[in-house]
């Protein structure tokens, strides 16, 4: 069943993104930024946690989960170090994703030629 929920949730988030792109002047940059903020906001009341439990990979793949993971890392450290912990832990859970993206993008850029 988790595959069905994965499909439905990831599809649903993308569907909303596409509706925004088609009906407003917002660019993909706007949409992804808005979704990250929404992901973080949904974690104020642990809503995104429940979505992850329910939809698994389907909830982790959309960019909304990036906001959720930033929040989680920050709050985990805030438990130990109070407000200062927010900054200490912010990138704890997202670091591997961001760093892989940076390193991979950099070396691929060195290897490959741009199209134009």
């Amino acid at each position: 069943m988790i595959y069905v929920y994965s499909f439905l949730f990831a599809g649903f988030v993308c569907l909303i993104g596409q509706i925004i792109l088609d009906n407003t002047k917002l660019t993909p940059g706007h949409v992804t930024s808005i979704f990250v903020v929404v992901g973080a906001a949904l974690d104020v009341f642990s809503i995104y946690d429940k979505i992850v439990e329910w939809a698994g990979g389907g909830a982790l793949v959309p960019i909304t989960s990036f906001g959720h993971l930033l929040m989680h890392g920050a709050l985990e450290k805030a438990h130990e170090h109070s407000i200062l912990g927010l900054s200490m832990g912010m990138f704890d859970l997202t670091a591997t994703g961001i760093i892989s993206a940076i390193v991979i993008a950099f070396f691929l850029t060195l290897i490959f030629k741009p199209k134009h």
């Binding site: 988790i2 595959y3 994965s6 499909f7 439905l8 949730f9 990831a10 599809g11 649903f12 988030v13 993308c14 569907l15 993104g17 596409q18 509706i19 792109l21 088609d22 009906n23 939809a55 698994g56 990979g57 389907g58 909830a59 982790l60 793949v61 959309p62």
Partner: peptide
Amino acid sequence: GKMYNAMKAFIVGGSVGVIGQLLI
């Protein structure tokens, strides 16, 4: 046209979600 775009986004995005769960 917009309906078609929305369907495409839903199906492709959903498939990426399924691939994610499959990898996990």
